[in-house]
Computed example of a mutant assay.
Amino acid sequence: MNFKDFKNLVKLRLTFLVVFSASISFLIGSRVTNQETIGYTGWGHINWMNWVMLIVGGFLVTGAANCFNEIIEKDLDKLMTRTSDRPLPSERMTTGQALVIGLFMGLLGTYLLGKLNLITGFLSVFSIILYAFAYTPLKRKSPIAVFVGAIPGALPPLIGYVAAHPSIDEIALILFGIQFMWQFTHFWAIAWVLDDDYKLGGFRLLPTGNRDLTSAIVTFVTALILLPVSLLPTYMGYGGYYVGGVSLVCSLIFLYQAFNLMRTLEIKAARQLMFGSFLYLPVVQLMFLFDFIGK
């Protein structure tokens, strides 16, 4: 097995995005903890060793979930152009090899996250089970899979936050809520672009199963709901006007891109929305971190 095969097995780019989200939330949680204990929210009292443990453990757990996903979908991946060259469908790697890698990464990652605290360890196990064994098989049965998948997809910021501040409080729920609502617009933009390829594997993930006006309207509505959700840090008093202003601008741009998809029903518009979603989340999360109230 070479690095390219390992990269494709664990879906490296997706895994890095997940780890980034969790690491930013860890820093937010650290500043909350410091504010509660010593009345200080700067950078000087953050446990950077725990931050590294979260990154390594989060990478391993996410990679394991993606590995199990590819094992389950091996035969379906052979049918799709986008996935046919992955190590399992191309038979450059056996299912047994992938299973060993997935189990090793999952166990080690859960151990590292569990050492931070039990809530973090529990949430990591829950995310693997829900993603690999609930979301994955549902993808061929119903668009409800997107809702199920949005839960483990939104757990990384929650896991990162409780790794530093072991309680699920309002800030934790805000971080979860922003990423949860973002998932729908993000994923349906991807599903619109890749719909032809997905259908080769039997996946019908758009709201109606097709590129039609109703699917576009539902996608637009999720972007619309995301707008007030993204303003919760400022509204609830946990962030200042900078995060509120940037979140508002990003949400309006995102909403315009979703409206453009609804207006045109074109793959080009869906691709623009997809790339917009890649920028939206890290920008909003970073602004929340840097504009955290009481810094």
Rank of each mutant, 00 (worst) to 15 (best):
G44W: 12
T264S: 13
R271K: 15
A98Q: 02
G44D: 14
I217R: 11
Q285V: 10
F220L: 14
Q179K: 10
R211N: 11
L213K: 15
F68R: 02
L14S: 12
A134V: 15
N66F: 12
W182A: 02
C67K: 07
S277P: 03
I293T: 15
L130H: 07
L130N: 10
F3H: 02
G240H: 07
I267L: 09
I28R: 01
V249C: 03
L226Q: 08
I174D: 04
H165G: 04
K141E: 08
V243P: 01
A164V: 05
F176G: 01
I159H: 01
P89R: 09
K4S: 13
M49V: 12
L17P: 04
L227M: 15
I225Y: 07
L232I: 06
D77M: 05
L17I: 12
P228F: 09
F104M: 13
A216K: 10
A189V: 04
Y235G: 05
P228S: 07
I101N: 01
T234A: 14
Q179I: 15
Y238E: 07
M80H: 09
G42D: 02
G63H: 07
F3R: 09
W48F: 14
V32C: 03
L200N: 06
N210K: 15
S142K: 09
V243R: 02
G149S: 10
H165D: 05
R271Y: 14
I225D: 00
R204F: 12
A216T: 08
N117A: 11
L118F: 13
Q272Y: 12
T264F: 04
F187K: 05
F133R: 10
R86L: 08
M274I: 00
Y161Q: 03
D197V: 00
F290Q: 05
E70G: 11
I151N: 04
Q35E: 11
S277W: 09
Y242N: 08
T208Y: 04
F6Q: 10
Q183N: 06
R263K: 15
L226S: 03
A189E: 07
L205A: 03
N47H: 13
N47R: 08
F254G: 04
L265C: 11
I46C: 10
V148N: 01
L279W: 04
R271Q: 13
L116R: 00
A22D: 00
K139Q: 08
F147T: 13
Y161R: 02
Q285R: 04
G44T: 11
E91C: 12
F187M: 05
G245R: 08
P166T: 06
Q272F: 11
T41M: 14
T94S: 15
D291K: 06
M80S: 12
